[in-house]
Design a protein around this nucleic acid. Structure first.
Lengths: 190, 190
DNA sequence: AAGGATAGTTCGAAAATCGATCTAAAACTG
DNA sequence: CAGTTTTAGATCGATTTTCGAACTATCCTT
C-alpha cells in the first residue's frame, strides 16, 4: 500500500511499438512447426501476465485520481469479488483463488479502512460473514465509472463487442481447465 | 524464490463450482442496466487478475516437476520474453512492461543461475546485450513441452482454436489500448 | 467426552515492488 | 574540447506482498 506512481524507468515511455523485430507471435524459440503457426496456449499465458502487469500500472493511476490511495489495486479488486453478496472468507477465497493467509491479510486492511464489514455468523461462530460497507460500495461505483471509459475505448462496435464476449467466455473456460488441472495434479501428490 | 508449493488453505480444494449464487457475471453491484447485460470491461479485468493468480499456482507446480525450482514463474516468463533474440535491457523492459529495477533484479538472478548471458554492447558500452544461454533455451523447451499439454486441453477442435485466436487478438488490442491510455494519462502529469 | 475436521487468523521469513540514487557512457552545445 | 544533459542500467533501502506453518476457536462425529 502507499505508492506515489510516477514511474521512472518503466515501459511507460515506449510502447511495444518499439524498434526491431515484430515481437508479436515472434518472440519465442521456434513456433513455425507443430501448431501450424496458430496462437499457442503459452502465448496467451504470456499475454495475460503482461496485461496483468500493465493494468496494475493503469489502475494505480486511476485509484490515485479517485482518491482511493489507501488501497492496493488487488484490494480494490477484492471488493468486486465480494460484490453485492454476503459471504464467508472461504467463499471469497474460492471465488478469487486467493491463498488463505493472503485473503486474511487483505481483508484485514479492507476492514480497517472501512470498506468491508465483518461479523460472525450466527449459525457457525467460526465463520465470518463479510460484505461491503457503504464506503466500499461507493468506491466500487467510482471504479465502475472509470471503467466505463475503458469499456468504450475497447468496444467501439458490434464486432468488438462480440469479440469481447468470446474472449471472456474463452478465458472462463481456460480458468476452469486450469483449476481442474491443478486439482488433479495435486491429487497425485496428496 | 524458494517455495515448496503444497498450498494449505488455498482454493485448490474447491473450484468456483461452489455453493450458492451463480457468481458468473453476477458478483458485482448492478449491471443489468446500461450495457444491456453484456460482458463489461471490468469483468474481463477481474478475470485476467484471477487467471494470472491461478496460472501462477499451476505453473509453480509444473516448474517443480521440471526441476526448475531455482526460478520464480515470473522469471521463467522473462526467458520467453527474451526469446531467441539478442536484446538490450531496455528492449526487455518495453516488451514485458517491467519496471526497470524489477527487470534488473530478475535479470540478475537469471544470469546468476546461468539461464541468461549478458555482455556489453560494442557500439554503446552503457548498453547490455542479453540472450538466453543453452540452459535457458533448454528450460524453455521443457516448459513449451508442458504447455503443449495445456494447449491440447484448451483447444480441442477448430471452434476452440478460432476462439483462442480471437481471444489472443482481442487481448492484444486491449493491451495496446491500455498502453495508450497510460501514456496519455501520464502525459497530462509530465 | 474425545478426536478430528473446519474456519479463519497470526507470525516470521523470504521475496517482490518501487522510487531514489548512483555510475558510466553517450550525445548535445556552445 | 570542456561542460552539460541524456540515457542505460545497477543498486539501495524501505515497504509491501507472499507463503506456509503454527495456532485458536468452533463444530462435527462417534
Amino acid at each position: 500500500m502507499e505508492h506515489k506512481s510516477a514511474n521512472e524507468m518503466t515501459a511507460l515511455t515506449a510502447m511495444p511499438t518499439n524498434g526491431h523485430r515484430a515481437y508479436f507471435p515472434g518472440s519465442m524459440p521456434r513456433e513455425e512447426a507443430g501448431d501450424a503457426g496458430s496462437v499457442a496456449h503459452l502465448e496467451l499465458v504470456r499475454c495475460i501476465e503482461r496485461l496483468h502487469r500493465r493494468y496494475l500500472d493503469l489502475f494505480r493511476v486511476d485509484l490515485m485520481r479517485i482518491g482511493a490511495d489507501d488501497l492496493s489495486p488487488a484490494q480494490v479488486m477484492m471488493l468486486f469479488t465480494i460484490g453485492p453478496d454476503d459471504l464467508s472468507v472461504r467463499d471469497l477465497i474460492d471465488r478469487g483463488y486467493y491463498l488463505g493467509s493472503n485473503a486474511s491479510y487483505n481483508l484485514k486492511r479492507l476492514v480497517e479502512a472501512g470498506y468491508v464489514e465483518r461479523s460472525a455468523s450466527v449459525r457457525d461462530r467460526r465463520s465470518a460473514r463479510i460484505r461491503l460497507s457503504d464506503k466500499g460500495r461507493q468506491l466500487c461505483e467510482l471504479v465502475r465509472g472509470v471503467d466505463e471509459g475503458y469499456h468504450r475505448l475497447v468496444v467501439r462496435d458490434d464486432g468488438e463487442l462480440r469479440d469481447l464476449e468470446i474472449t471472456f467466455r474463452t478465458l472462463r473456460r481456460i480458468e476452469h481447465t486450469w483449476t481442474d488441472a491443478l486439482r488433479s495434479g495435486e491429487a497425485r501428490i496428496a
